[in-house]
Design a protein around this nucleic acid. Structure first.
Lengths: 342, 342
DNA sequence: ATCAGTTTTGGAAGCCCTTCCATGAATTGA
DNA sequence: TCAATTCATGGAAGGGCTTCCAAAACTGAT
């Protein structure tokens, strides 16, 4: 049987309350008793039982991160930020993988009403009003990351503005036939980036052509944000030849990777024949010379943790909507640098 | 205050023991009472408190996954397998990020002696005898994935054989000047792949040249398994020109991505001037036409979870050493297919 | 030495479950 | 019909902690 607080108390010749106070660094403890207790703890190699502590304190020191898919490169970077920050606060991270918005319901029940975690970060999830309401009612600390709902804390990237700028960049390079490859619209960023795309066209008086928009969904599970989906989406655009777009805004770099391959295969040149702008600035974007919109993912992760923890400890300010802006990283794929090396 | 088992008992007009039995699907319960209790549970929207259950049952339904770094593409795929499997068993996954082997010590203390989790998966960690011993003593269920220790359960990939075959492939293509770019040797796969590399040279009577081995460590935190590190390592090899290797075995695809870039920049051609074989078969390997050793990561993840859970429930067989074999995926970068398209 | 005030300490109660044991009801057989 | 079983049920005990309250141990001034 493991050693408990009673064993420590007995060994140190004090009461359990005193031991507890030492553990929790209560100020009202004599230096002498503190030393005694500390020694006993070390002698017995005692470690408090997290569950028992959690039960008594009504705090688990755990937070949930709920992600729609794992393959995302976006998610990787975000996770790194979250992990770095969470470590500082001595919290533990529980990972949940949820694809459909409705499953959040189930999660609320399981992980949260079970009180397994003190709060949760919801990543890249489109939140319906119904779900938002349930979250509110649950009165559990929540922070949305990379998605938005008016009644919940959210940290987002300016997807609309980013998509707008990416598209505008292509327009300013002289393109008139501009396509877009997007992810499934149930993914919130996919939906919003489409809006930005459309707005740029509108503002520059370029008619939106339905056949120039391809929602990529070749395989399921990642909302179309993957390489194959991008590849097949681009194939579809290329079928429109000779009337295919001369420029394409792709809603994620990983899709762009597939799209580039598709273009490559038909013998067309990037950017001469087709210019590409992606979104995310994932690691290989630089390698590929892919022009893209960079998202400050690491920072978002850190901020999300800070906010969540301040909510958990009730020191949170009332409202919280943070919007990170994106930054256009110009490389070769858009043609702005001339036609070098692609 | 949340609703407890007492509230349910009162409402259903039964004792708490009965409610508990219903929750845990004990057989000895009348259909009638079961219905009553179930109704009360639904009426009150009752959800058992995970911590209280855990305390009473001495089981947390949580398992830890301990990874040395997050950026790894390898890890992504593995995580997917783990997640899929864990979901079936109704476990929750707690994520720990640990870089140095010695930190495992601390982890053992924190997460495990705190009994926050029922067991742990240790990913890609070099385990010293000392640590292995501590793990044994802790008597907590552990499974090593992608690393090996004689006294612990391990699931590995045949790194040595894989590296051997990758190198042999290059030898059989006629190369004599063969280099290797490896990760930090404190990473277990890095160390073992080096052995396989050396053995292949030995077997084919090619002397091992120290300057042809570069341990990549440009930035820390991922044991050299990243793009920049690969880039710089290759730069170093290229400095040996005109006596640079004509073929390089790179210990991970992501490093190979960097290496390819470095080669590209000097105007050399792959595979004509330098042939490359990687390791992992990450998503973009296909895109890049990178010849590589494929690892069955998803399967490893699933198997690891199965094994861990059977250990937790004491149904585990005595010993467990599984070795997955790798598979050479031939693409353009090695030159075996001729000199197309690179 | 005494008293009031202050600080430190011990331990019961409470957090919410599971499980075991005892109880009483139902069932069986003669 | 009654004793002997069997079986569902209630609830105390136990799991290991925190916290509150009361008691004990101080403090220093008289």
């Amino acid at each position: 049987m493991a050693v408990t607080i009673y064993d420590v108390a007995k060994r140190a010749g004090v009461g359990i309350g005193t031991v507890s106070r030492v553990i929790n660094e209560s100020p009202q403890i004599t230096a002498a008793t503190k030393t005694k207790v500390l020694k006993a703890i070390k002698d017995l190699n005692y470690q408090p039982h997290a569950l028992a502590q959690g039960l008594a304190r009504k705090k688990t020191q755990m937070i949930a991160i709920v992600v729609p898919f794992f393959t995302g490169y976006f998610f990787n970077e975000l996770l790194r930020g979250i992990q770095q920050e969470i470590f500082k606060y001595q919290y533990n991270l529980v990972l949940y993988n949820i694809d459909e918005g409705e499953q959040i319901d189930e999660l609320l029940k399981k992980a949260l009403r079970e009180r397994r975690v003190d709060g949760a970060l919801l990543i890249s999830h489109q939140i319906s009003d119904k779900i938002a309401n349930k979250i509110k009612i649950s009165s559990l600390p929540f922070v949305l990351v990379d998605s938005y709902h008016p009644s919940l804390d959210s940290i987002v990237v300016e997807n609309k503005q980013g998509a707008f700028e990416a598209t505008r960049h292509l327009i300013q390079l002289g393109h008139k036939k501009i396509g877009m490859i997007d992810g499934q619209l149930k993914s919130s960023p996919a939906k919003i980036r489409l809006e930005g795309f459309k707005q740029a066209l509108l503002e520059y008086n370029i008619p939106f052509k339905k056949e120039y928009l391809v929602i990529s969904d070749y395989i399921t599970g990642q909302h179309g944000f993957n390489r194959e989906a991008g590849y097949h989406a681009m194939k579809q655009l290329l079928k429109l030849a000779p009337n295919h777009p001369t420029a394409v805004f792709v809603s994620s770099d990983i899709q762009a990777v597939g799209a580039i391959k598709a273009i490559d295969e038909t013998g067309l040149k990037i950017p001469q024949d087709i210019a590409i702008v992606g979104f995310d600035d994932i690691e290989i974007a630089e390698f590929l010379g892919l022009t893209t919109m960079r998202q400050p993912m690491l920072e978002m992760g850190k901020l999300a943790v800070q906010r969540l923890i301040s909510k958990i400890s009730n020191t949170a300010s009332k409202d919280f909507k943070i919007s990170f802006s994106t930054k256009l990283v110009i490389r070769n794929s858009c043609g702005a640098l001339g036609h070098s090396r692609m």
